[in-house]
Design a protein around this nucleic acid. Structure first.
Length: 812
RNA sequence: GUCGGCGUGGCGGAACGGUAGACGCGCUGGAUUUAGGAUCCAGUGGCCGAAAGGCCGUGGAGGUUCGAUUCCUCUCGCCGACACCA
């Protein structure tokens, strides 16, 4: 083996060199026309906020590892990257430092790009996109118009979540416990004309198609999405108020209709004013006023005691004609169902609590299997038992009564079965500057007019101020009649930008359409998508929605965009998530300077299971550093070069076995994202090689095979050092281009095994025996053991359990 | 409250129902070195013991099994998501 002159491992000397070579040779530039099997490997693109730290890097290192691994396995890998570059933080930061958001954003992109490169992370940069650039957002606008044409974009007056700090509207999903997801300020309610995307039209498919992702998406994420969509089946029922108004309620428990002893309307319910009696009016108004002023967070607290007020009015229960009082209470939400409920205190905890507080009747209509309780001390909410006090439905189990009563209501014209969702339409209007303008014009004569495709993009003006404050920009001729009109000044939620970027990557520079359907169909769906759990709901749900709409529009075949999803855990330091604001991030620059990119990458994979959070321990990086020094020495330093004898020496045999066992283990671990144990397996291989050398083993063909395997297996994790050693050991091409080593099961098989001998389930001895021993022989060998004899006390075992090549258990 | 996830040495963590603690950090002892955050060898869960060996041990209590870190039931603790959705 030709070995270049020995020299210590100095990562800083070799890393930039190989980064340059990979870039020059276009390693990882995807070929649309390749006939190798395609593998679309994608990591969630980031918002370019400035310096990256090793917390961010975990995602990119995993992605890079997968790309390199799949490529060596012979796949044509598409591994693009881009920037989710619109958003309010850039706008706010820009104002603070007196720069333009574009300038700031592009500067941040340059920083991040350099940091990715110094970690040896490769992408097909020829496909780079930034959502804030016109050649991208032109197509975001085109897609918005497509949604509009398909009736999936609409505008309406809506009570919206308003963040007073960011001065914008937020989607429901962006309100966390009543606070803004970005700035954490309390969110207010406001009525505004807003743009929505009709994601509710796709609620069923978004829910049902989660089945297609069973086993390939984390169960946790599937459950979160299902809960978010929140489909429930129930019935809408009309209760007639004494004013003659029908009050429609929604219930999932029509079987409890006979137990409805009062009704509750949300304070915002439109019929509140109409039904309220004069005597109660001032009290009701005061309550409604108070509810309005209360913040979401106060109102939604379950801890809080129920409040409410009687309207003075009554309604008729359609199933039994009973007269029941109508109350107002803020525990009923206008935003769900019909904003009105029938209250069944006997079988609903909230209604029970309310009834107790206001001394309203509690009636038992579902008896548990043990029989009616009579006086209920708590709401009985289970659906087991049978109906009582429910007229001709008495005796039916709830599951049977539900469809029966629903059907009866429909026949009587008093209600119908309905399906409801927790999912709301997606509010996409934002009222600031740094976002994708909604390509619409408001004309007094023509109404809302879409900007013709030929006039796209609607470009942002240069001034960094809300579009609504920029008359020079928003005053335009109507595309339809030519008269002076006003551009839409809302921009789109940035989650739209990221809801289709994976499609744009398949033909990133297409000038005719958002993406080329043929190329999209070639590359889609994404084979492996990797990112943070924080996007479990929003980004993934919206992307799935877009994929389905574009599928329906005939633009792309797959109905799901991401075949496999992996969500990596966060990297913490001192118990807290690495973040800029906490100042506890580990900078890749420092790491590269000290330990080198490769050791950093290995440490990041070795730190723990990749789907779990991990604690960054500075001293522990030493392990990977030492490991790479050892690899370097092992590969370059042994100087005796001997010819392999015809037959393998015992040491060679062991080495060969360990090598093939490592090939199997590392291949499996990379495939199943068990990167931490893959590192262990590689360390074990290096230790085996070390033993071989120390024991005076031959450095012939077997040795060479081990060296090659070590470098190839290690390459996806530590690309620079392996590339350098690959070259120094006389290989012609790049390690990155080399084929993944083949696993030979015969070579990995152990000729002897350690048989664990148990007596009564306790380990008493371990015997070195040839593999594949028949039970009788194993038993004989076990019984010969002195320790076993002692444990058995001379008596023969009553039972013997034999697991070939592993264990024999003698039960006395 | 509901739904998830997780509890294993001083630390990060391994372990198809079959040798608990792989691999690494740290630590202890030794060897070696003109350089490197060096390197090499041995040891390192607890208790008893000079040793051989033995006993205990995966948050806790039960259960299934020849055998349980792994499966089941209950329970405690931590973390996360959702949270008055009728």
């Amino acid at each position: 083996m030709a070995v270049t002159k020995r020299r210590g491992y100095v990562p800083q000397d070799i890393e930039p060199k190989w980064q340059r070579v990979w870039a020059e040779r276009g390693v990882l530039v995807a070929d649309d026309a390749s006939d190798r099997p395609k593998h679309y490997n994608l990591v969630m693109f980031p918002y370019p906020s400035g310096e990256l730290h090793m917390g961010h890097m975990r995602n990119y290192v995993i992605g890079d590892l997968v790309s390199r691994f799949r490529r060596m396995q012979g796949m044509e890998v598409l591994n693009p990257f881009g920037w989710d570059a619109f958003g309010m933080p850039a706008e706010n930061a820009a104002i603070k430092v007196g720069k333009h958001p574009r300038e700031l954003t592009l500067g941040n992109i340059a920083i991040a790009k350099r940091q990715l490169a110094m970690m040896g992370v490769l992408y097909d940069w020829s496909r780079e996109v930034a959502t804030c650039l016109p050649d991208y957002y032109r197509w975001t606008q085109a897609l918005f118009l497509l949604f509009w044409e398909r009736g999936l974009a609409y505008r309406r007056l809506a009570p919206v979540n308003w963040c007073p700090f960011d001065k914008t509207v937020l989607a429901n999903e962006q309100v966390i416990n009543g606070r803004c997801w970005r700035c954490d300020n309390l969110v207010e309610k406001k009525d505004l004309e807003q743009w929505f995307l009709k994601i509710t039209d796709y609620a069923d498919r978004l829910l049902d198609d989660l089945e297609l992702l069973r086993g390939t998406w984390p169960e946790k994420v599937r459950v979160m999405q299902a809960n978010w969509i929140g489909r429930s089946h129930g019935a809408e029922v009309d209760f007639e108020a004494e004013t003659g108004d029908a009050i429609r309620i929604y219930t999932t428990r029509p079987d409890t209709l006979f137990g409805a002893t009062f009704m509750v309307l949300a304070p915002e319910h439109p019929l509140v004013e109409r039904v309220t009696t004069d005597a109660q009016r001032s009290e009701v108004r005061a309550y409604v006023e108070r509810a309005r002023r209360e913040t979401e967070i106060e109102r939604l607290s379950t801890e809080r005691e129920k409040t409410g007020v009687f309207t003075g009015a009554y309604a008729t229960n359609p199933v039994n004609g009973e007269r029941i009082p109508i109350w107002i209470a803020d525990y009923v939400l206008m935003g769900y169902g019909t904003g009105a409920i029938m209250a069944v205190p006997g079988h609903d905890e909230r209604d029970f609590e309310f009834a107790k507080k206001f001394a309203l009747e509690i009636r038992e209509v579902i008896a548990p299997p043990s029989g009616p309780v009579g006086e209920l001390s708590t709401a009985y909410v289970d659906k087991v038992g049978s109906l009582v006090n429910s007229g001709r439905f008495d005796g039916l189990p709830p599951e049977v009564a539900i469809p029966k009563i629903t059907q009866w209501l429909a026949e009587q014209g008093k209600g119908e079965g309905v399906t409801r969702y927790r999912l709301r339409d997606w509010l996409i209007s934002r009222q600031r500057y740094w976002g994708c303008p909604i390509p619409m014009v408001h004309c007094e004569a023509c109404g809302i007019v879409p900007v013709p495709d030929a006039e796209l993009p609607v470009e942002l003006p240069p001034e960094n101020k809300p579009l609504a404050e920029n008359p020079e920009w928003y005053t335009v001729p109507c595309p339809s009649c030519g008269r002076s009109a006003r551009r839409e000044t809302d921009t789109m939620d940035t989650f739209i930008d990221s809801a289709w970027y994976f499609l744009r990557f398949t033909s990133a520079h297409d000038r005719e359409e958002p993406f080329d359907p043929e190329l999209a169909n070639h590359w889609m769906a994404v084979d492996q998508y990797t990112g943070g759990i924080e996007h479990a709901i929003l980004h993934l749900l919206y992307s799935r929605f877009f994929e389905k709409v574009l599928h329906d529009a005939g633009m792309v075949e797959p109905v799901e965009p991401f075949m496999r999803l992996f969500t990596q855990g966060m990297v913490k330091r001192n118990g807290q998530v690495m973040s800029k604001s906490l100042g506890n991030g580990v900078a890749p620059d420092d790491l590269v300077k000290r330990e080198g990119a490769d050791a950093g990458r290995i440490y990041e994979m070795f730190i723990g299971p990749p789907d779990e959070d991990a604690e960054w321990t500075v001293s522990a990086v030493a392990g990977p550093v030492r490991f790479l020094h050892r690899v370097w020495r092992l590969v370059l330093e042994p100087e005796r070069i001997e010819r392999s004898p015809a037959a393998l020496s015992p040491s060679d045999e062991v080495l060969r076995r360990r090598t093939h066992q490592a090939i199997r283990k590392v291949t499996d671990d990379y495939t199943s994202f068990a990167f931490n144990t893959a590192v262990s397996a590689l360390m074990e291989l290096a230790n085996a090689m070390q033993e071989h050398v120390a024991g005076g083993g031959e450095l012939g063909d077997t040795w060479r095979e081990s060296v090659d395997a070590l470098l190839l297996l290690l390459h996806p994790m530590a690309p620079h050092v392996t590339e350098e050693l690959w070259e120094r050991t006389g290989h012609a091409g790049l390690c990155a281009d080399a084929a993944w080593p083949a696993y030979n099961p015969a070579a990995a098989a152990d000729p002897t095994i350690t048989l664990v001998v148990q007596v009564g389930g306790k380990v008493r001895d371990r015997l070195e025996l040839p593999a594949g021993l028949p039970e009788a022989d194993a038993r004989e060998a076990a019984l010969r053991s002195e320790k076993v004899g002692r444990a058995l006390d001379g008596k023969p075992p009553r039972q013997v359990v034999y697991v070939p090549d592993r264990l024999i258990n003698l039960v006395p």
